[in-house]
Each structure stands twice: as structure tokens, then as C-alpha cells.
Computed example of a mutant assay.
Amino acid sequence: MKKMTLFSIAVCFTLITTAQISVSGIVSNDSIPLESANVIIKNSLNGVATNSKGEFKLEAKKGDTLSVSYLGYKPQEFVINKTEQIEIKLKEDALNEVVVVAYSGHRCWTTGCGVSISYNTYWDTNVEKNKLYPNPSSNGIFQLKLVENYDEVKISVANMSGQIIWNSSSQKLGKKITIDLSQFSTGIYIINIIADGKRLEPIKAVKG
């Protein structure tokens, strides 16, 4: 009888610790809501994009880590320990150093400063990024070109309401991946990528 009681307590404890809770909140830059910010449970495909008011809502477990990111802002992570609404304020990230090269051969190193050159110039960030093309796509079929080869790539696609509409998991597929959103309506979608357990920078896809 005592063993059964201990077993029952253990089962109840396990159910409590693994129970799903509803987590909601607002992502903003001080007072400005950030639309399409990525709110994802770290190391999973469970995530949403914020709506036009910066709001999000998803299911998680206590102890999960919430990862929040938005292009141009420093990402933040939070350990979930409550169900009440979370207010998340992201801070702008410093601009990456770039090189301005004029055809005359003059070079100027700058970090976000204003540079005025009267002749033709080009900008080179010297950082190769993952690319999605064609983007926009008229038929909703995109090609994702990754900078590196990965053993396993997991992709989830969220619509502007934050709903995950498409999932894919592939192994040993090289650097190119097809994402087929042809069955969905025109609009903006957020591509979330986990490669070999590492979350890559999300990409905004436009079907139109």
C-alpha cells in the first residue's frame, strides 16, 4: 500500500511538472509594439509571431525557455514560471560594421555613420547570410539556401496571426531546401529554422 501511495505521488508530480500552461504577452520597443516578432520555445518548433499589436499567446511548460527575437533588435530569453501576461521590451542592436568602397579605390570604415559619396559605391557586409528566393514568390514556392551544410534542419512557418501552418524536418539535405506554401493564401509568413540544434535568424517570406 505504501509503495502504491509513493507511486501515485510520483505520477502526480510528473503530471504537474509536464502540464502545459498558456503563456501570453506583448513584445515592444519601449512604447511601440513589434509586429511579427518571433516568440519561440527554445530548442523546439513551438512558436508564434506577434500580431499587429505585438501580442502573442502559446502553450508551454513551466521551466521552458522563451526566446524572443526581432530583426534589428537584441534577442532575449526568459524562463517561464508563471501564466500571467509577460511584457517584453527589446533593445535595438548596434549596426554591424560595413565597408564603403568607391570605384576610385578610396575606402572608408564606418559603423552606422552617415557617409556621402558623389560617385558610385557599393556596400559589403562581408557576412554571408541564409537566403530565401524568390521572395516575394507568386506561387508560394520558395527555395531556402543555407550558408552551411547541416545534418538536420527543422523548419516551421508561422502566419501573421502567429499560427504555425507548416513544419518540416530533413536530414543530410545539403544547402537548398524547398518550402511549399502554395496551398496557403497570399500574405506574409515567418520562416523559423533550427539547424543541428542551433536556431538561425528567422526570415520573412512574402507570397503575393
Rank of each mutant, 00 (worst) to 15 (best):
S169V: 09
T65Y: 05
P202Y: 09
A37K: 12
I41G: 09
V68P: 11
V99R: 04
I190V: 14
Q163N: 02
S67A: 04
S22P: 15
K129F: 06
L71R: 08
D64P: 06
K204L: 14
F78R: 15
Y103T: 11
T125R: 04
I32N: 09
S67C: 05
T14S: 12
G25C: 05
Q20A: 06
E59G: 05
E92D: 03
I86A: 02
N43A: 01
K89F: 10
N159V: 00
F78M: 09
Q76I: 08
Y73K: 00
S24F: 07
D93H: 08
P33V: 14
A102D: 15
T121A: 11
K131C: 08
G112P: 06
I179Q: 02
S28G: 08
N46M: 10
S24G: 12
A19H: 01
I32C: 13
K91G: 03
N149E: 06
G114L: 14
P202K: 08
K172Q: 11
W166V: 00
E97F: 00
T125K: 06
M4F: 14
E77T: 15
L90S: 04
N149C: 09
I86F: 02
D180L: 07
N192R: 15
T111Y: 03
L95H: 11
T5H: 14
K2Y: 13
N51H: 02
P75E: 13
A195R: 03
M4H: 14
G25P: 11
G105P: 09
L132Y: 00
N130F: 00
N29F: 10
I141L: 10
T5A: 12
V100G: 07
T5K: 13
E201F: 01
A60I: 06
G47R: 13
I41K: 07
F56G: 04
K207M: 13
I194T: 07
Y150Q: 04
A205F: 05
S22Q: 15
W123M: 12
M4V: 10
N38C: 06
E77H: 13
N139W: 02
Q183F: 12
S169F: 05
K176P: 00
P33F: 12
L34H: 11
L90H: 07
C113Y: 06
N149I: 02
P136M: 11
D30T: 01
S69P: 08
Q163E: 01
T110Q: 09
V68F: 06
K3V: 12
I41F: 04
E97S: 03
N126F: 13
F13T: 15
Q143T: 00
K145M: 04
G140F: 00
V157R: 02
T83A: 04
Y189G: 01
I141M: 10
E97R: 11
A94F: 08
E148Q: 10
A94P: 01
L144T: 05
Q171A: 14
K154M: 03
A19E: 00
G140Q: 09
F56N: 09
T125A: 10
I21S: 15
